[in-house]
């Protein structure tokens, strides 16, 4: 079985379906046709561009170019985490906590996978590095965004309880311990659920892609397992880092709860 090359005409046929959906939306006054078309156009441009860039990257296998690409991916993911926060940390922390945690988790896990597990030569071979890093960044991004959002929101709501615990002579980490535990749990639940139902309802995206591209199903399943384990550990590591740094930032050197370090609620998140 070989890969059947898709022609622009094939894609145009699929695009017509989206146009039809937009037409229905307009007709039924759903009001999403504009956003739908813009999103479809964006994904077309972004994916074609990424395809072109990867083509160049794969042809060159140049470490500086790959590092630049990885940094751009990290920067965008960091921005996305910040966007999803109801109450952001003021200053550089709003962007920094999520980005640093993702850097710590996604990059180390990817590196570990490339060098120790898969054993790619050279380790930065873009065909492996970019998709792996992308999967890890995308998933740790959701986990960290959820965990941080839950941390700041709950700390805001539980102000009285946290301060009561401080007044009872507890240290900052004792006072926020239950909030922290909940935040970490909510960050990890999506990936745990994804692992628990993997393959039962739908085939995970990567496995689907490999099978469509002609890989034997067992090989595709093994790669998918590898990715899931990497994602789970990366998300766990990243959420822990984010919740730890984030909760520390909620207290100052005299262990006062400093909710003034959070910005006002952001309604769009």
């Amino acid at each position: 079985m070989t890969l059947i090359i898709l022609s622009p005409f094939d894609l145009a046929l699929a695009a017509i379906l989206v146009l039809l959906l937009a037409g229905v939306s307009w007709r039924l006054h759903l009001g999403v046709e504009r956003r739908l078309l813009i999103a479809a156009a964006r994904s077309t441009i972004q994916l074609v561009l990424v395809g072109l860039i990867l083509k160049i990257l794969f042809a060159q296998t140049s470490l500086p170019l790959i590092a630049l690409m990885a940094l751009v991916m990290l920067a965008v993911a960091g921005y996305e985490v910040m966007q999803r926060q109801t109450r952001r940390y003021r200053g550089v922390w709003g962007y920094g906590i999520g980005t640093l945690s993702m850097f710590l988790s996604a990059f180390t896990v990817t590196l570990l996978a490339l060098t120790v597990i898969i054993g790619v030569e050279p380790w930065y071979q873009p065909q492996y590095l970019i998709p792996l890093l992308g999967m890890l960044l995308g998933n740790t991004m959701s986990g960290i965004a959820i965990a941080l959002d839950s941390l700041t929101r709950q700390a805001w709501d539980a102000r009285g309880v946290i301060e009561a615990r401080l007044l009872a002579g507890q240290t900052w980490d004792q006072a926020i311990t239950s909030v922290r535990r909940d935040a970490l749990r909510s960050g990890l639940i999506p990936i745990i659920n994804a692992m628990a139902t993997a393959g039962l309802v739908s085939l995970p995206g990567m496995m689907t892609g490999q099978i469509l591209a002609g890989s034997p199903p067992m090989e595709a399943a093994k790669y998918q397992l590898l990715i899931m384990f990497l994602i789970a550990s990366g998300t766990g590591l990243g959420s822990m880092a984010a919740v730890w740094i984030g909760s520390r930032r909620l207290f100052d050197e005299r262990q006062r709860l400093r909710l003034d370090r959070l910005a006002a609620a952001n309604q769009s998140a």
Binding site: G160, V161, E163, A164, R165, L166, L167, A168, G169, Q170, T171, S178, R254, Q255, R256
Partner: peptide, 26 residues
Amino acid sequence: PPALWRRRVGLLPAETCWWAEEVGAH
């Protein structure tokens, strides 16, 4: 240390908050 200070200089706020389920746990 802040925790020791707050133990020594005890503040009773106007609104009281509790973190465990039972009275005795506090």
